Simulated scan of single mutants.
Amino acid sequence: MGWLAAGDGYEIALVGGRVTARSTTGRSAGRQLKTLPKALRDHPEVDRLRRFARWLDRHAEDCLARVDNWMVSSLPVPTGLLARVWPDEAWQSALRDLVVVGEDPEEPGLLRDVTASGELRVVNLDGETVRMAPPTVLLPHPVLLPDLEELREFAAELGVVQKVEQIHRATWRTPEHPTPGGTEVREYAGGAYTSRFGLAARAASLGYRVSGGSATCLVREAGRTTEAAVWIGEPYWDDDTETGALQWRDADGRILRLRDVGPVAWSEGMRMAAALHAGRIIEEGKDA
């Protein structure tokens, strides 16, 4: 974005997400100023740029949320759509270096570029840049990646930093022999909080929905919708409380048996339960 005239003898621009000014006259002409001059603080152009900066922040957050949803749900994404959004810096930042899978599920790679025609340029595990143009691609949830550890090592060698947490996302594998007829997990139950409000606030800050007495996350997996839910206490209760059991429900609200929970729903539910438990009160001292 270029520099815009504002007031007498100044220009303004967004630099690093904040409004910055430079002088156009005198010995300091063209020099970027460390602080915004008092004469510009209430200028209409400055206010307009500030509002634009807030919109850009919201847009970037929305892009990250949408890509995260594609990944968590392993939704097929049309390559034509990727071509359309790639020129947008916010979309490109969210998508760059994510693991994508085309027509061959055994050939994952890191997304590096998308051409206007919809051709993807991907770095495979051999370190080679390959081109592919399938109708759709998947951004797989890490629990579904058979080469996850190899991908993590490869990404570390390249210095890859993903904006959407994928290959370094904490994962939990479904147990080989779940409790027969079992419908809940209590591994992360018992995390104490001073109030139900504090527990609900932590859930919301982590991006989870609070509904009734539970913190929930929704996962679309293999054509079905599953909701993981951790009990956090009745809404009207505001004394000390603690995290409860984790359960999974189907689209009709029926509680699922543990053996019927899919791998992504299991991993995301456990991730939520662990994150809520991690915010518990930690007592200090020899008896903690």
Rank of each mutant, 00 (worst) to 15 (best):
M1F: 08
A5Q: 02
A5Y: 01
D8K: 09
G9N: 15
R18Y: 03
T20Y: 02
T20I: 12
S23I: 10
T25G: 08
T25M: 13
T25L: 15
T25I: 15
R27V: 12
R27S: 14
R27D: 10
A29L: 08
G30V: 10
G30T: 10
G30Y: 11
L33C: 08
L33E: 12
D42V: 01
D42R: 06
D42P: 00
P44F: 12
A53N: 00
L64Y: 05
A65K: 12
V72P: 01
S73E: 07
S74I: 02
P78E: 11
A83K: 04
R84W: 10
A94I: 03
A94Q: 10
V100Q: 06
E103K: 05
E103R: 12
D104G: 00
D104R: 09
E107D: 14
E107W: 13
P108Q: 10
G109F: 08
G109Y: 04
L110H: 05
R112K: 08
R112W: 04
V114N: 02
T115Q: 11
V123L: 14
A133Y: 08
L138D: 05
L151T: 01
E153T: 09
E157D: 11
L158T: 03
V160Y: 08
V161P: 00
Q162G: 03
E165P: 00
Q166H: 06
Q166Y: 06
H168E: 06
E176C: 02
G182F: 04
E184L: 06
V185P: 00
R186W: 05
E187T: 14
G191A: 14
T194Y: 02
F197Q: 02
G198F: 06
L199C: 11
L199D: 07
A200T: 12
R202M: 13
A203Y: 10
A203P: 03
L206F: 11
G207Y: 13
G207P: 12
V210I: 14
S214H: 14
S214Q: 13
T216R: 15
A222K: 08
A222N: 12
A222S: 13
G223S: 05
R224I: 15
T226I: 15
E227M: 13
A228L: 11
A228Q: 08
A229D: 02
W231K: 03
G233M: 01
Y236I: 01
E242D: 09
E242K: 06
T243C: 09
A245D: 08
L246W: 10
Q247K: 03
W248N: 00
R249E: 04
D250R: 08
D252C: 01
D252M: 03
I255E: 11
R257L: 08
R257P: 00
L258Q: 11
L258H: 10
D260C: 05
V261N: 07
V261E: 09
P263G: 05
V264Q: 02
V264H: 04
E268N: 03
G269K: 01
R271M: 03
G279L: 11
I281D: 10
I282S: 13
G285V: 12
D287W: 06
